[in-house]
Design a binder for these strands. Structure first.
Lengths: 77, 77
DNA sequence: GAGAATTTGTACGTATGTATG
DNA sequence: ACATACATACGTACAAATTCT
């Protein structure tokens, strides 16, 4: 029952890369189009995963730039 | 007793905004995602309400743009 | 500065599955 | 069986911001 949704699975993968230190603070996550192709999911699904991480305060997204691992000390950046 | 379905209720609200002139011809209706959050319903329910209004000829929807109050004189626009 | 390419943001279209009354 | 309502997941189109050539 209730298999974990794809966007949750993708969020899990990215979350681990962050908490494991593979992705350092301020470093960019792979772009949406990359993740889309790499994981064989739609852009909407990628964006849902990103939203999960944003809501957890793990990443920050900037239009036209990308999504970055959040610096712990920053409230707004 | 069949309480009025949510999508009918939402259609009623939007229809009133149009007939009351709050929403002028060619002006955009609130987006699906906005209505979704604002009324606490799913996107499917919002879309059903929109379909009702489209079938009544009250609004016209354009992919990637939005849904607009129909101009009375236009058959196809 | 101009123009193209990249990246994220927003909006609608469609399909499927689940649950409830 | 059927209508309602939700969630997930695919797609297309267009807009905005930034970066690169």
């Amino acid at each position: 029952m209730d298999p974990t949704p794809l966007y949750e699975q993708l969020a899990d993968i990215l979350r681990r890369m962050i908490t494991a230190g593979e992705l350092q603070p301020r470093s960019p996550l792979p772009s949406e189009s990359y993740l889309q192709q790499e994981h064989g999911v739609s852009r909407g699904t990628v964006r849902m995963a990103m939203r999960v991480l944003r809501e957890e305060g793990l990443v920050v997204t900037i239009t036209g730039r990308g999504t970055f691992v959040r610096v712990p000390e920053s409230e707004g950046e």
